[in-house]
Design a protein around this nucleic acid. Structure first.
Lengths: 230, 230
DNA sequence: GAGTATTCTCTACAGTGTAGAAGTCAAGGG
DNA sequence: CCCTTGACTTCTACACTGTAGAGAATACTC
């Protein structure tokens, strides 16, 4: 996988292509992206691109991975709560920085975080919180679904105060059946994305803490070792 | 939008096409789906399809919407916790029933729940939990990101006990930096999807409850009316 | 019936990803 | 030096995509 046996300008070319691909995708999104356009931008034959990356699928995967290079993942500390917040914020930063690439990252990495570095931090944090192994495994995934889903929604422009057109749509709903929705319109108009995000992570953290407190001392499962905090 | 002014067999044809489109998509996924294949299956010209649905994009949207028809959305009760669980389970059921269509639903509806019926239930539940309007608005979105992201991960096959190949990959990680991940392997091998899902929703609920408890009496915002439970 | 609105089909075009053959060039051995 | 070898690039070609535009077919109103 890594690098078969390079010759000529193999290594250079590949990263060059990847950079160009990333930039093209980042500026035009999936719609405007094609191997042929990329090749044209590079002044190269389309098949050259396909020679370095076996297929479009692989190229997209590489783009999604490359996105991670632009953010720095936190490392574990002794404070699991701020560790989780740090990881969450790292992904949110990614979504902010490359909103068009983020859906790609989501597609390939929500479905299995290849990104072991950050999941290590998450697992570690959940352990520190006092959860049993089985809970850690399940909630680790939940944390990803949560954070990535949220960041995706934000990248796609949902997590903004609603505009006049949305408001009009909500106003048009049946008052009887949509009481709560309609009365929330003012709050939706003044929604603060940062606050909403922080708040949501907080809810997760509070929930984890409550769960840990409710199952005292954990270790009800056959976890190999104690593996305390650090 | 609804139906301009039908004539001939407009209504019939359209739903017929939509059904066929849904079935095709549900059985072959996005890869195997194309307007031309759909038309061929219907024994009709591709352009006919495009005449009823203005573009492929619109057709996909219609398919995503149609998916919701196959699940029944709960209505609000006096128990906000089980209301949230019910909504979450409804989407999970959807993901289970049509795993190939679910990503589509996610793409179009994670980015703005057109699905007002279920969000009404969610908003109502969060209100009942005792949250202020601003929190309700933000956490409503968080709930969706959470549930949909989780269900998506499951639909795409992530939320399963890891197999031998994944295990091998994890075993290959550096023992020093990936302590937590590696020691979680046994738990990941015996992961129970149902339990993980329930557990995750529980964490959300526990967190909401804790947040509500921490900000006593809410109503710090200019919410129009008291709008109690029902 | 005639006229008209509506739906369907045909043809055509600009794109797409990619298989396979052919070309191009650098390095190494005779 | 030439000639083979092998990686890298390009050319050509194919099957396939969504969809614009003109035309043919159909049904409805009068």
């Amino acid at each position: 996988m890594a690098e078969p046996k390079s010759r000529a300008r193999r290594g250079v070319e590949r990263s060059e292509i990847l950079d160009a691909a990333f930039n093209l995708f980042a500026s035009t999104g999936e719609q405007g992206f094609s191997i042929r356009k990329l090749a044209a931008a590079l002044g190269v034959d389309p098949m050259t691109v396909l020679h370095h990356f076996g297929s479009k699928e692989e190229l997209l995967r590489a783009i999604a991975d490359r996105a991670l290079r632009d953010i720095e993942m936190p490392v574990s500390t002794s404070d699991w709560q701020s560790d989780l917040k740090a990881v969450a914020n790292a992904y949110r930063t990614l979504a902010h920085r490359h909103p068009l690439v983020f859906p790609l990252h989501f597609r390939y990495n929500a479905t299995g975080p290849t990104d072991h570095i950050s999941s290590e931090v998450v697992y570690c944090a959940l352990r520190q919180a006092g959860l049993a192994d089985a809970d850690v495994a399940g909630l680790g995934l939940a944390f990803y679904a949560f954070v990535l889903g949220f960041a995706l929604a934000e990248a796609e422009g949902l997590l903004r105060p609603i505009g006049p057109s949305d408001e009009a749509e909500l106003e048009g709903l049946e008052p009887e059946t949509y009481k709560a929705t309609r009365s929330l319109i003012p709050a939706l108009k003044t929604l603060d994305p940062d606050a909403a995000f922080d708040n949501s992570i907080n809810v997760f953290i509070l929930g984890v803490a409550a769960l840990a407190a409710g199952r005292p001392e954990s270790a009800s499962h056959k976890s190999k070792v104690g593996f305390a905090t650090h």
